Simulated assay, not measured.
Amino acid sequence: MLATDKLKSLLGIEPADTSKDNILEFIINDVIENVINYCNIEELPSGLEHTAYRMAIDLYRNENVGNEESAAAVSSIEEGDTTVQFRKSVDEDFKNTLLKNYIPQLNRYRRIAWE
């Protein structure tokens, strides 16, 4: 099972900082759910724990979970009359492509589901 404390360590968050615990727990549960659903299995195998942590790190860094507004980056600046334009810095299709980055690892554990 993935642990919030280990994910904090991997993200460089101080262990005593509990302000992001709910967000990290949500991310961990989301990743586990995605892996289980994709692989058609009942629980996360120990062989996929490192992959799941990498997926959780990617989600945390790219999805801006826990903020009302998504992350934005400056796309252009004008100095005369000071104009600044922002664009989303997050790939809007990130959630759809998250599994694709890890398919080779996940396919080793994938089972055929008959419906």
Rank of each mutant, 00 (worst) to 15 (best):
M1Q: 08
M1N: 12
M1D: 13
L2P: 05
L2Q: 07
D5R: 08
D5N: 13
K6D: 08
L7G: 02
L7D: 01
K8N: 02
S9Y: 10
G12F: 07
G12D: 03
G12Y: 04
D17W: 01
D17Q: 11
D21C: 05
D21A: 06
N22C: 00
I23N: 03
I23K: 04
I23M: 05
I23R: 05
E25Q: 11
I27W: 02
N29R: 09
D30Y: 10
D30G: 05
I32N: 12
V35A: 05
V35M: 07
V35Q: 05
I36K: 09
I36G: 07
N37G: 07
N37H: 04
Y38W: 03
Y38N: 00
E42S: 12
E42Q: 13
E42G: 02
E43F: 12
E43Q: 13
E43C: 07
E43W: 02
P45D: 06
P45K: 04
P45H: 03
S46M: 05
S46R: 11
G47H: 02
G47P: 02
E49Q: 12
E49K: 14
H50F: 11
H50A: 13
T51Y: 05
A52R: 06
A52Y: 03
Y53C: 00
Y53E: 00
R54G: 03
R54M: 13
M55W: 04
M55Y: 07
I57R: 08
I57A: 04
D58T: 01
D58N: 14
L59T: 04
R61K: 15
E63L: 14
E63N: 06
V65I: 13
G66N: 04
N67Q: 11
E68L: 13
E68K: 13
E69Y: 12
S70Y: 04
A71K: 08
A71N: 06
V74Q: 06
V74T: 14
S75L: 01
S75N: 09
S76K: 14
S76E: 13
E78D: 14
E78S: 15
E79A: 07
G80C: 01
G80Q: 09
D81W: 06
D81M: 07
T82N: 15
T83M: 11
T83Y: 07
V84G: 10
V84T: 14
Q85E: 15
Q85H: 08
K88C: 03
S89K: 09
S89T: 07
V90I: 09
D93K: 15
D93C: 06
F94M: 10
K95P: 00
K95R: 15
K95Y: 11
N96E: 15
N96Q: 12
N96C: 04
T97V: 11
T97P: 00
T97H: 15
L98C: 05
L99K: 10
L99P: 01
L99Q: 02
K100M: 09
N101L: 15
I103M: 08
I103H: 07
P104R: 03
P104V: 05
Q105L: 11
Q105M: 14
Q105D: 15
L106A: 02
L106T: 03
N107S: 10
N107L: 08
R108K: 14
R108H: 10
R110Q: 11
R111T: 02
A113C: 00
A113R: 08
W114T: 12
W114G: 04
E115V: 06
E115I: 07
